[in-house]
Amino acid sequence: MGWLAGLCLYKITKKGDLKVNAKKDKESLFDRLPLMDKKRAMKFIIYGLITAILFGIIMMTSRSIAQNAGTWYNMANQDNSMNYWNGVYGYTDYVQRQQEISRIRYWMEFQDVIFMNVARVGVNIALVFVLIGFLGFAVNDNLDPRTRWVSLIIAGVILFIMMFTTFFSSIVVTVS
C-alpha cells in the first residue's frame, strides 16, 4: 500500500507542478515586462533591429527601382529600336515590345506603393519590439539609473518616430 500512496503523491506533485507551469505560461507580455531581464530585452532589441533593417532594405530597393524606372524605360526602348533596325523582328513585334516596356515601367513605379506600405508596417512592428526591449532596460532594477534613463529616453524617441511614421506619410530625410 505504501508504494501506491507514494505513486498518488507523486502524481499530485506532478500535477501541481504542471499547474504552476501552466500559470507561468499564461502570463502575458505585460506581466513579464517589468521582470524582463537584460538578456531578453537585448533579444527584443536585436530581433527588432534585424527585422527593421530587412524591411528598410526592401523599402530602399523598392524606391530605387521606382526612381530608376525612367532610365530603364529609355534603355529598353533604345534596345527595341536597335533590334528593329537590325532586322531581328518587324514593326509589329517592335510595337508590341514597346507596349510591354511601358507596362513594365508602370509596374516598376507602382510596386513602390505596395512594397513601401508593407515595409512601413513591418518597420513599425519591428520598432515595437525595439521599444519593448528598451522599456525592459528602463524598468530593470538591476541596471544603474543612468542606463535606465538613457533607455527610457531612447524608448521615447522610438515611440515618437513610430507615431510620426504612422500618422504622416510625407516625411523625407535627405542625407547628401
Binding site: 528593329y84 533596325w85 518587324g90
Partner: peptide, 16 residues
C-alpha cells in the same frame, strides 16, 4: 500586309 525597310536610325513607324 506590312513590309519593313529597316532604315537604321529612322523611326520604325516611318520605315514600315
Amino acid at each position: 500586309f506590312l513590309y519593313s525597310i529597316f532604315a537604321y536610325g529612322q523611326s520604325p513607324s516611318s520605315s514600315t
